[in-house]
Simulated scan of single mutants.
Amino acid sequence: MPRNRRTVVVTGASGGVGRATARAFAARGDRVALLARGREGLTAAADEVERAGGEALVVTVDVSDAKAVEDAAQQVADEFGRIDVWVNNAFAGVFAPFTDITPDEYRRVTEVTYLGCVFGTRAALRHMLPRDRGTIVQVGSALAYRGIPLQSAYCGAKHAIQGFNESLRCELLHAGAGVRTTMVQLPAVNTPQFDWVLSRIPGRARPVAPVFQPEVAARAVVHAAGHARRREYWVGGSTVTTLLANAVAPGVLDRYLARTAFEAQRETGEQAEPGNLWSPADGPHGRDFGAHGRFDDEAVADSAEEWFSRNRGRLGAGAVLGGTVLGGTAAVLAARRRAGSRRGQRAADSG
């Protein structure tokens, strides 16, 4: 086992980004606690973790239950001795215009996506602060900055996580704590959520293109866990473009999304069952959905922005070194030119 083997908790680990992230941590030999509601998905995820070289612990929990999350964290600490990394990834959503979402549905999305992150962070800090070390990774989205139509509940929850994480980060810095928190803002990802999400739009729900494979997100999360001094990571060119456009011309983006985002989030066909808002999608059906959705044919397996984000330090050092060499070379050439000029001047004077 690697000397830097860690104990990692991943919420929402039964499918999608959480599932891919658990595998990525396992590939480096980590012990991975898998938290989610769906037993079938968790069992399959645990098998993948073991095959990848990690050690798995399955904990069935609804992250909207604060006491259950505290108990889950204690179970992990009892089993593995400590918690080094906590990844808040679990979420829920509803695809529908705001006026078609019931108050109970809105509350449920908020409790799972936002309060699940808050409760997970609180549980992690309870174990990390006494040791004065540990990392909390919030899995965010470009939609944490830029709301889009048909996903108001999810966008609102991701915005809330963004504000919460910034407040917490300031508090930890003020206290001089050794615990770090960072956030990974993701693009559209090819996950099973588009088959199990509660939807009231015509046709089948789909992500706004371009779509990335969940392994792209997983690599970014694993890197962020080891480099949490960075406050935030952006993954995917679409994320970068969206966030920059929203910062420069949000009104223009409002009108663009009003024209295009409704059609961009649906395709022909009937929305598949089951929904997972109130119960796990794999529960009554005994089905493991895995990490990938139905968009493998179009999903991108690499992200230049994610690679650049992971390698920014080395690229920066290379740029500095290259600049130093070039600067030194230029200085030598300039000195030689000045010396040559002086020799020529002395020769002219003597003549």
Rank of each mutant, 00 (worst) to 15 (best):
N276P: 06
N190Y: 07
R169P: 10
P97F: 04
A348T: 11
D65E: 14
L125R: 08
L57I: 06
A66E: 13
E232T: 06
A27I: 05
G340N: 13
A13K: 08
A228K: 00
V221E: 06
D302A: 09
L198K: 09
A20V: 08
V59M: 01
R3G: 03
P130Q: 08
H159Q: 09
L34W: 09
T21C: 05
F80E: 15
M183Q: 15
R82D: 09
A228C: 02
N246D: 15
E273V: 08
K67D: 15
A261Q: 12
V248H: 04
V252R: 06
F91A: 11
P192A: 03
A92E: 13
E305M: 05
G251H: 12
Y106K: 04
E298R: 08
Q74T: 11
D47K: 10
H227N: 10
A56W: 04
E215T: 11
T99W: 13
D62A: 11
P214I: 07
N246A: 04
F295D: 05
T110H: 09
V240Y: 03
V179H: 10
D132R: 12
G269F: 10
Q138I: 06
Q213I: 00
A224P: 09
F25C: 04
R338H: 13
G226D: 13
A301R: 07
H174F: 14
F25G: 02
A299T: 01
P280A: 06
